[in-house]
Nucleic acid binder design. Sequence first.
DNA 1: CATGATAGTGAACGGTGTTAGCGAACGGCG
DNA 2: CGCCGTTCGCTAACACCGTTCACTATCATG
Lengths: 253, 253
Amino acid sequence: MSALPAGSPNRRDRLRAETVQEIKDTARRVLVQRGVDGLSLRAVAREMGMTAPALYRYFSSRENLVENIVVDLYDELCAELGQAVDAARPATPPVQLLAASRAFRRWATTRRAEFGLLFGSAGDGLLPDVSAPADAPETPVQEAAGRFGGVFGGLVAAIYLERPFPTPAEKDLDPALRAQLVAWCRTLPVELPIGAMRVFLSCWIRLYGMVCMEVFGHLKFALDDAESLFEDELRQLAELLGVADAYATVERA
Amino acid sequence: MSALPAGSPNRRDRLRAETVQEIKDTARRVLVQRGVDGLSLRAVAREMGMTAPALYRYFSSRENLVENIVVDLYDELCAELGQAVDAARPATPPVQLLAASRAFRRWATTRRAEFGLLFGSAGDGLLPDVSAPADAPETPVQEAAGRFGGVFGGLVAAIYLERPFPTPAEKDLDPALRAQLVAWCRTLPVELPIGAMRVFLSCWIRLYGMVCMEVFGHLKFALDDAESLFEDELRQLAELLGVADAYATVERA
DNA sequence: CATGATAGTGAACGGTGTTAGCGAACGGCG
DNA sequence: CGCCGTTCGCTAACACCGTTCACTATCATG
């Protein structure tokens, strides 16, 4: 038991980290080529000239491998959003939010299989949440999802703090809803009016719904190309946040 | 080849139909208990005291069995919506739409596994649509999904025809979006202004997004119980359709 | 009754996730 | 350097999966 206090990058640890990365990269390639169901440990191992049991030296199960990939994907998505935010000109929160939204859709439509893993019903077991104890610690996947949500949340918060958009009065909200929003707000770094959190949820529901429907093919009954609808929704969201002027000044690229 | 001109319910055909039904019922039970991945032909067969190969006398593959279940689920969902619509009092389109929306959420949250099969990313292959020829005939699943969409579409249409809600002017819509909406409109039984179709899509996106997020657990980062948010969204949709009065008159059940 | 369609069986093929046991390579330490 | 424990990858194996095949009962019908 060589309890190295971390720090020193043993040659062995370095090789191990490289192998872990190669496995995840290969798995992701298999995921894209063969789909979620085709993502088998044996296929991954085959692709890198190994055998399936060897993968268990690095991941405790197929499920664990998938979870690690999901976390990586969330972080990659966050990075891509951050890049779009940084590149947005003018560098104002409204324009940045539009850029992030477009980057989100682009990422989703470009990497359909990965998106399905993160936001669809396939990735996480559908049922376990029922039995999950309320005080369970957050899983790495949930943490990564939280970081992702924070990108949009932070931008909407910045927009509000700079120029408050109209929000429903706290008194007009259903008590049950208000109580939950208050509890949620307490877990966040910034403090916003409850009504603003409600508006944020509305925006996120529409963005999520729009992109999900497009990627999962549930919009084909009406439209072949959903981009124009997406842009129109984006325009409406900008109006909702009182930043329609920002939408008007940004070309659709 | 006894080419009975249909009509006569041979004893044999009756038994066969019963077996088909039993297989589908059993499969659905397995789906609920074991999840999508646990829905195996062998498990179904085991549960009914048969062997897996025997199922191939009734369904050409596991995929085919799942497709048939999906169609049944769509129809069951439609029936449930229709029941809610019929039971709505007063029997006016706005109240009926609210009833249908609530029934949709109730069905989804009550049958999570089934909902994931219909509206998530697991059921239909994620990629084949890319290679699907544009002139391919509609699959039974697509037809069933169309019947489902028609319920909400019909109600929104009825609301508009009775008391037109505000719609964006056709001239203000992006040409690409307008063209697609026009093409879609031509495939429908009723003729509505293009702007009304746009509003319908907006409503559907929000309803779908809301229910999907709740069922797939993507709302847990903010809320424990999504019902109050759902009701608030519903109220906003009613306002969008100019029927806020109908929402106010209906208790939340 | 004889015939042919039908519904079920068990065996088998190739695939999967996963575990157990073995040997070879490797890094740290006396 | 040589020892020794850890790590790593392998093969073999188990249980399960979808699917095909050959075979046998059953049963309605000519």
